[in-house]
Amino acid sequence: MSTVLDTSAMQDERDHLVLSESEQFKALGHPLRHRLLMALRQRPATLAQLAAALAATKGTIGYHVKVLEQAKMVRLAYVRRVRGGTEQYYEPTSPRLRIAADAPVGGDFLIKAALSEMLPPEKDGPDVTFLRHLRLTGEQAHALAAALEQFADGDHIPEPGAGQQYGLLLSLHRSNIPVLPDDEALTYDGGHM
Rank of each mutant, 00 (worst) to 15 (best):
A27R: 00
L28Y: 01
H30Y: 08
H30K: 10
H30E: 12
P31C: 04
R33F: 02
R35V: 02
L36H: 06
M38T: 14
R41N: 12
Q42R: 15
Q42F: 07
Q42P: 01
R43V: 11
P44L: 06
P44F: 04
T46P: 01
L47D: 05
A48L: 11
A48V: 10
Q49Y: 03
Q49D: 09
L50F: 10
L50V: 09
A51R: 11
A53F: 06
A55K: 10
A56Q: 14
T60Y: 04
G62C: 13
Y63G: 06
V65F: 01
V65W: 00
V65Q: 04
L68I: 04
E69G: 06
E69Q: 10
Q70S: 09
Q70K: 13
A71D: 02
A71W: 00
V74S: 03
R75I: 00
R80Q: 15
R83Y: 06
R83L: 12
R83M: 11
T86L: 05
Q88M: 03
P92H: 03
P95L: 13
R96L: 01
R96Y: 08
L97F: 15
R98K: 15
R98M: 13
A101C: 06
A101E: 13
D102R: 14
A103R: 04
V105W: 03
G106I: 03
G107A: 11
D108F: 04
D108I: 01
D108Q: 05
F109T: 05
A114R: 06
L115N: 14
M118N: 10
P120A: 10
K123C: 00
D124M: 02
P126C: 06
D127A: 15
T129P: 05
